[in-house]
Design a protein around this nucleic acid. Structure first.
Lengths: 331, 331
DNA sequence: ATGCGGTCCGTTATCGTTATCGGAAGGTAA
DNA sequence: TTACCTTCCGATAACGATAACGGACCGCAT
């Protein structure tokens, strides 16, 4: 910038103004500066800008698992929306480890991102107090917390459970099992939706038909497989299963097929997430779509709105409606 | 920092030194400063630090598609390795669009990341000249460029092709087709490996059995499906297919099954990438593993080595050996 | 008393950019 | 002529940290 200013006989301030399209620069000067910028291949130092403006134009995203297609898709949607507005996205994965997540959040705080998006693997809300202390705007994604008044973007998880379960009922299943997840809001609410649907149709299944995952740190596909093997030993054998996410359903289907049973004739399966490739599975999987990209997009817009807003705003909750996608695993 | 210094009656420099574990601070002062830091919940402003040190402690990663499990896995490996060393990772996706990729790279340059990792969707090497001009260290991942002497980490793609094709030959296939990808190094070299394997075993197949993808901007699974339908109309019908990546193979398998044929009895299929979930597919997929996480890890280490090195270093190429993973689609 | 070497801490300048205000030059109206 | 308004530009001081060097103070040997 100094070089440009010197070369053209103007001040750095002038150059800076051209850079930011300030009004009080004559067209002629502006042209000259722009020309020289091109020539020198000049790019402003965003670190310096961040320092003086207090804005980094970076949004932070923390997810539990980048490999999970759901989060990958959210990240993609986010990235696209943010890029359009000139923001960058810095992503980090907590590997479903609350402690690691805490560290990552602190890192982001230190980097002075403009806002944070978190799909949390946390048990407590302590991390979020940290964030609030720094007055950093943040949005929860996918997983929310009871007792934490925060911005949230996600799907209506209870509706997910209801939709899936009613579909199984409609296709004739009577003994419907559920494979749940760890103790996070998505898993809990989907289970509630499942229970409500059963109740509404006066179906009763024993508690042994509802199993959460064994160990929280395992891949969902593995635990889905193991849990399903257990379910198949029950009497009467379940004729339908609602799995709280697609990887779990994939594991479950593997167990069912290995037991020599047919899907959906013997056991129908519904997942949730509508992961890409769900249609290429051994049996194409009926699932509940949770509009990953829409989540990313809405989250991006909400986050930017928070950044632009001066004062503190009332926490906003955006709930998206899930959609059922019927494939061979139930028909 | 100023506050801490004032409260304790020391200078900011002293505080700064404590922060960075400088040796010339007495234990007593150090303790006092650390204590006050905790109390105030102080976190250094990394933007300011970046400005004065010229190091951002951020590594940039540009991938063609975050949703592709391969890149997601690489990102995960990278993220983990970098975090250990105190570096952050900023990720962006080019959506397989060279122009967008160019923009993303420029963004990263402006942000003054310490090094860049690029899995490029580029046709030309122009972007990389940009990077070199800024003297920014960079590492190519997965896809390399003839005529560009750059650091590279990836799998030995010709070996991938050979491994897959020889496996098909060994299982008895004689008319082996190949579904390739766009014009990137991975696709080209895998095709060469395929050709060499055929030649070594004196097998001859016409050029109509080797098809690249139709449109570069489509999802691989879709194009795999379409290309396979075309291949199935050939006479003699291929009894084996080597697909240059797993999503393509998934599409191909869909086409084969839809045609009423059996895998592997009528047509055997081999993919490449060993995408997670490959074993849950309609027919569990035989594939060539390319060690995604190892790639991430090696790339991270190489990048950091470049950052630490003062002067320019000789470009280094790290080639990992692929491994064959046999599943039902060929046995 | 002098010189020398540690230990511990502070002074000053600097990184590259932007915010804020002031002011010169020229035009216009009374 | 004077007053006032535009238009365009620049001087200066920040932002929050670090680098490089200098210096006070103490102990010890000469």
């Amino acid at each position: 910038m100094k070089d440009i200013a010197r070369d053209l006989g103007v001040s750095v301030v002038t150059v800076s103004k051209v850079l930011r399209n300030h009004a009080d620069i004559s067209t002629e000067t502006r042209e000259r500066v722009l020309k020289r910028m091109k020539e020198l291949n000049y790019r402003p130092n965003l670190a310096a800008r961040a320092l003086v403006t207090g804005r980094s134009f970076i949004i932070g995203l923390v997810v539990p698992d980048l490999l999970h297609p759901f989060f990958a898709e959210v990240a993609k949607g986010l990235s696209r929306s943010l890029r359009k507005k000139g923001y960058g996205l810095i992503i980090s994965s907590s590997e479903e480890d609350p402690e690691l997540e805490q560290q990552e959040i602190d890192q982001m705080l230190a980097r002075r991102v403009d806002a944070m998006l978190v799909a949390s693997a946390q048990w407590t809300v302590e991390s979020f107090r940290h964030i609030e202390e720094q007055k950093m705007p943040y949005v929860l994604i996918d997983r929310k917390f009871a007792g934490l008044a925060a911005n949230f973007v996600g799907v209506d998880d209870e509706a997910v459970g209801t939709l899936a379960t009613e579909h199984l009922i409609k296709t004739g299943c009577r003994v419907i099992a559920h494979i749940g997840g760890q103790d996070v809001s998505t898993a809990v609410e989907r289970r509630q939706g499942y229970r409500h649907a059963l109740a509404r149709h006066s179906l009763v299944v024993g508690p042994e038909y509802v199993i959460g995952r064994e160990h929280g740190d395992e891949a969902s596909d593995v635990s889905g497989y193991e849990v399903m093997r257990k379910l198949l030993r029950l009497d009467p054998r379940p004729d339908g299963v609602f799995c709280y996410n697609d990887p779990t359903a994939m594991g479950a289907m593997k167990a069912i097929l290995e037991a020599g049973l047919r899907i959906p004739q013997d056991v129908a399966v519904v997942g949730a997430g509508n992961v890409r490739y769900a249609e290429f599975l051994r049996v194409p999987l009926t699932t509940v779509d949770q509009q990953c990209e829409a989540i990313g997009d809405r989250a991006a817009r909400l986050a930017l709105a928070l950044v632009e807003a001066k004062g503190p705003t009332r926490p906003k909750t955006i709930l998206l409606e899930p959609r059922l996608v019927v494939r061979d695993s139930t028909r």
